[in-house]
Computed example of a mutant assay.
Amino acid sequence: MIWNGRSAGLLVAAAMVMSGAACTAGGGGGDEGLSCAGRYTYQDRTYQDVGSVTFTPGKKLGVATQPPCDDTGGKDTSEVPVTTGTAYEVDGIPPEVAIAVGDTPKTATLFAVGSDPDLPPEVQELIDGS
């Protein structure tokens, strides 16, 4: 095979797609079916991003931590920088069920314990109403 600029470019593009796909559903990290980037922990509970949902954020709760993503094939996760975000209450839903995480209440995203299809009923109602 003759390597030229186009072949090398295609190889780089394929590698980028594969590395991005490694952190999606079933891509590793120990929790099969959960996205590495779509999880936060707060007070020893793991919350999963539930997507674009209309909700009303409440008061600031504290710091939520995004667990390291072990999608590197055995790389030491202690070397991976920890990501944090501010956790906020979600009006009408206890923090044991769902929180919002973001830099501000207006930019926060909804996270809930469980994942499709096992979302808590309170969260499913928000999704159905969005």
Rank of each mutant, 00 (worst) to 15 (best):
K59C: 00
E32T: 12
A15G: 15
G20H: 05
V90A: 05
D128Q: 06
L110C: 02
E122Q: 12
L61E: 10
L119V: 03
V113D: 11
S115Q: 14
V50R: 00
S78I: 00
L34C: 05
G73H: 13
Y47F: 11
I99P: 04
T56S: 12
A87F: 09
R45D: 15
N4G: 11
Q66G: 04
Q48A: 08
S52V: 02
S7H: 12
A64T: 13
R6Q: 10
V53M: 03
T24W: 13
G28I: 09
D31H: 03
R39S: 10
Q124A: 10
C36E: 05
I127M: 06
Y88D: 06
M18V: 11
T56A: 15
E122N: 14
T107C: 08
G102S: 01
V53N: 02
R45M: 06
M1G: 14
A25V: 07
G92D: 05
M18Q: 09
S35R: 11
V97H: 03
A13W: 04
Q48T: 13
Y88N: 05
G20T: 05
W3Q: 01
T72E: 11
D76K: 06
A100N: 07
G30V: 11
P105N: 05
A25M: 08
I2S: 12
L10A: 09
A22P: 04
G9E: 07
T84P: 03
S7I: 08
D44I: 01
S52M: 13
C23Y: 09
A87T: 00
M1P: 14
G33Y: 11
A25C: 08
A25Y: 12
V113E: 05
Q124S: 04
S35Y: 04
T109Y: 09
V53P: 00
D118T: 01
D128Y: 00
S130N: 14
T77L: 10
T77W: 02
G74R: 06
E32H: 14
V101S: 03
T83Q: 08
V113Q: 04
T65R: 14
D70M: 13
G62C: 01
M16T: 12
T77A: 02
D103V: 07
V50M: 03
E125F: 00
T83P: 07
S35N: 12
G58H: 03
G20V: 08
G28T: 07
G114L: 03
A37F: 08
